[in-house]
Design a protein around this nucleic acid. Structure first.
Lengths: 105, 105
DNA sequence: TAAATTCATCGCAATATTACGATCAATTTT
DNA sequence: AAAATTGATCGTAATATTGCGATGAATTTA
């Protein structure tokens, strides 16, 4: 075994875990921070902003896309990546609600 | 290769990724939600709240411990798990600051 | 003391992630 | 048209994660 057992959890729990997973790598944090800074539509200079090989960065971009956090638009030979406002609102609500639950022992 | 290259990123980026990683599994979300609900010091009934084997739950608890989000205190034969208020404040600030960065394209 | 409970850890297997170089298709530039 | 740029994808390899049963150490209960 070793496959994650999504069936056993609620959609909310799975979605929250999925969003967290998208943030669970410093390179992806760095990519998102870069997209924050350059809030104009930014293209593949992301590769230069992250100290990893081009193919690796491409994979990380794909994971962010799969989670719905960003989307890329083809613009000639380049691709324009941008944050997805809808998904971003989503993550704010879900994570916000999660973090603000009254806690503690 | 395959090892994560922490050296290449800032401590903040690594810590944020580490915290996100701790949340990146529905079972761990479920465990934390359970600890939220039972805000009295709760003991190992966590296993019953999560539909996985005891050994697996124990591993997830250990990952939450490693990230500093919870800590367990031995109380006789049982162990009392509770949220760590300090780490929780930490995650709120780091994730909050991250999520509230002005965005978007 | 013997049996039961509680929870961590070990050993194992399956799968996922991380990373890179090489390559490919598409588009630009020369 | 030929060369260069851009960025996705493939192949490969190392390592991490997920999950379970079995076992073990400690404590409780009978």
């Amino acid at each position: 075994m070793g496959a994650s057992k999504k069936i056993l959890f609620t959609p909310q729990q799975n979605r929250l875990a999925e969003l967290a997973k998208a943030l669970a790598h410093p390179a992806r944090i760095a990519i998102l921070e870069h997209l924050f800074r350059v809030n104009d539509c930014v293209c593949g200079d992301i590769v230069e902003a992250v100290p990893l090989a081009q193919s690796t960065v491409s994979q990380h971009l794909n994971e962010l896309k799969k989670a719905g956090l960003i989307h890329g638009e083809i613009e000639g030979a380049k691709v324009c990546y941008a944050l997805d406002p809808k998904a971003w609102a989503d993550i704010k609500i879900l994570l916000g609600r999660f973090l603000e639950t009254p806690n503690c022992c």
